[in-house]
């Protein structure tokens, strides 16, 4: 640091040049530097892993959107497809690579850095589980899908769950557009995706998140997105119920506000 102001007093009390003046605190600060460098390096490594996990989780969600039948195992060809399996293993590798950095006291020290990845991964995990079973995977079962030593907080689980409702909405709308019917299990026992979404919304609304620091900050905005998602599906199902029989198969309920009815083609 060069500062003109420091040079003015030629009879200055202390030598000004770096060479003939040594701060007695240099060794102390060298220790601090080592500690802070270790911290920053670890932090950056975790941020990178978190980004990779987020990106791969998004790809998996994208692939899952193409599943046709609700309430059945995801078809093996999809699971085994290069795209899907590659992203699954990327996620696994990244979790394993940062697990030692997230041990013990560091679990919460770097929670904010790994959190986005975990939330997106939860979204993928919960989405897949819902497609297969039309139920919600519990936090403890979800935690088992993340590498050992990597903590799944209630916050990340719940925020992932909120985001998953958006995926269910997209899935429902797309399925109605392509098949002309609301996704439901073929056996019919577990209801359809609309009742699932409505129930999920009710349960999320009932959650009092004021006790949680992380959730109290984010949940309100997520809740409003979830409400919108559920209402989109409700409206689409309504349209299909009222007018569906007049529509050719393949009619997209998303179109009806922007296009005159006569133009819609099957």
């Amino acid at each position: 640091m060069q500062m003109a102001g420091m040079k003015r007093s030629r009879d200055g009390p202390k030598p000004q040049g770096r060479a003939d003046w040594d701060s007695p605190y240099i060794p102390m600060f060298e220790n601090f530097r080592a500690e802070l460098d270790e911290h920053h390096d670890r932090r950056e490594k975790i941020i990178k892993a978190s980004r990779d996990i987020t990106a791969s989780s998004k790809k998996i969600i994208f692939a899952l959107q193409r599943v046709r039948n609700l309430g059945e195992k995801i078809p093996p060809p999809l699971i085994k497809s290069k795209e899907y399996s590659q992203h699954t293993s990327t996620i696994h590798e990244r979790f394993v690579s940062v697990a030692p950095d997230l041990k013990g006291i560091n679990a919460y020290r770097y929670q904010r850095q790994i959190s986005p990845g975990i939330q997106e991964f939860m979204e993928a995990v919960l989405f897949r589980h819902y497609l297969e079973t039309q139920s919600i995977l519990s936090p403890s079962e979800s935690a088992k899908l993340i590498s050992e030593n990597v903590l799944l907080t209630e916050d990340d689980y719940v925020l992932g769950l909120f985001d998953m409702t958006g995926e269910l909405m997209r899935y429902a709308i797309t399925q109605m557009a392509t098949n002309g019917e609301l996704p439901a299990s073929r056996t019919g026992g577990r209801g359809n995706i609309l009742t699932g979404l409505q129930d999920l919304r009710t349960k999320l609304e009932a959650l009092d998140v004021s006790g949680s620091y992380g959730l109290s900050k984010n949940a309100e905005q997520k809740m409003s997105t979830t409400r919108t998602s559920v209402e989109k599906v409700e409206n689409a199902v309504y349209s299909m119920t009222v007018r569906g029989k007049e529509r050719p198969k393949g009619w997209n309920p998303g179109m009806d506000t922007s296009r005159p009815v006569g133009e819609v083609e099957g």
Partner: peptide, 24 residues
């Protein structure tokens, strides 16, 4: 309400955890 397959226990447990956090 129509049938749904969502386990209410999940949300009860989450609520208990969140409340505990609030107490701490």
């Amino acid at each position: 309400m129509a049938a749904s397959n969502i386990d209410p226990a999940i949300f009860e447990q989450l609520q208990a955890k969140i409340d505990e956090e609030g107490r701490i």
